[in-house]
């Protein structure tokens, strides 16, 4: 269970507070106007942005002392999710063991992850030789291998076309359901949020509100969200 306890994020003029809980295995969209702090919120949870005050807890454990790589989560960024100079297999291997000293079991796990994400036969390619959709799958396969209980998506599929994006989100939903992974997904697209995430955290006017049913929120948006949605 992810808990943001009296969390305050500050940078220059920017200020965001959050005091909320995300239940285990939930798929949650993080929605709100541009610049509201959606990405900053994910950055803080992932350990790239130190909170001004408050705590971020996972099952009651404070994450503050943990380095980004040691936190019980995987994060997919908007871009630069893969090392361009490493092969697909090596990029996946980093999810198993960051020093890339892999056992036979590790290699088998990598092969399974490749197969499950539809990347058979691409193990020795470099990211530059893959399509955008394939690159997203590699990043997702690595998250699958890391098998952390929390997955943060900071718009990793924003550059994909609508069909590919829907396909990727379906894949995330399937993988997350199997391992009961909690997913937080920043989204600019209300349709994505409706389809993928039963719950939504609204980030607006300096506050991240507790998760609420996505459909209800989008059907009766508060004024600030309505302005952003344009209806």
């Amino acid at each position: 269970m992810l808990t943001l306890e009296n969390l305050v994020l500050e940078q220059d003029d920017f200020r965001l507070t959050a005091d909320l809980t995300v239940p285990d295995g939930a798929r949650v969209a993080v929605i709100g106007p541009s610049g509201a702090g959606k990405s900053t919120l994910l950055s803080a949870i992932a350990g790239f942005f130190a909170p001004a005050s408050g705590r971020i807890l996972w099952n009651g454990q404070d994450l503050a002392p943990l380095a980004p790589g040691a936190r019980p989560l995987s994060i997919l960024f908007q871009d630069q999710n893969l090392f361009a100079h490493l092969t697909v297999a090596q990029n996946l291997g980093l999810g198993v063991n960051p020093s890339l000293r892999l056992t036979a079991t590790d290699r088998a796990a990598i092969a399974t992850a490749l197969a499950r994400t539809g990347l058979e036969g691409l193990a020795d390619r470099r990211p530059g030789q893959l399509s955008g959709g394939q690159q997203s799958r590699v990043a997702l396969a690595r998250a699958l291998l890391r098998a952390r209980p929390l997955l943060l998506l900071d718009e990793p599929f924003a550059a994909l076309g609508p069909a590919l994006k829907a396909e990727m989100l379906a894949m995330v939903a399937k993988i997350a359901a199997e391992a009961n992974t909690t997913v937080l997904m920043v989204s600019h697209d209300p349709a994505d949020a409706r389809n993928f995430a039963p719950l939504a955290i609204l980030v607006v006017e300096g506050q991240a509100l507790a998760p609420q049913p996505t459909a209800k929120l989008l059907d009766n948006p508060p004024p600030a969200l309505a302005r952003y949605l344009g209806n």
Partner: peptide, 14 residues
Amino acid sequence: YARLAASLGLTGLA
């Protein structure tokens, strides 16, 4: 790559 490396725990000699 700094954020990606940190998120994967890629540190030190590796």
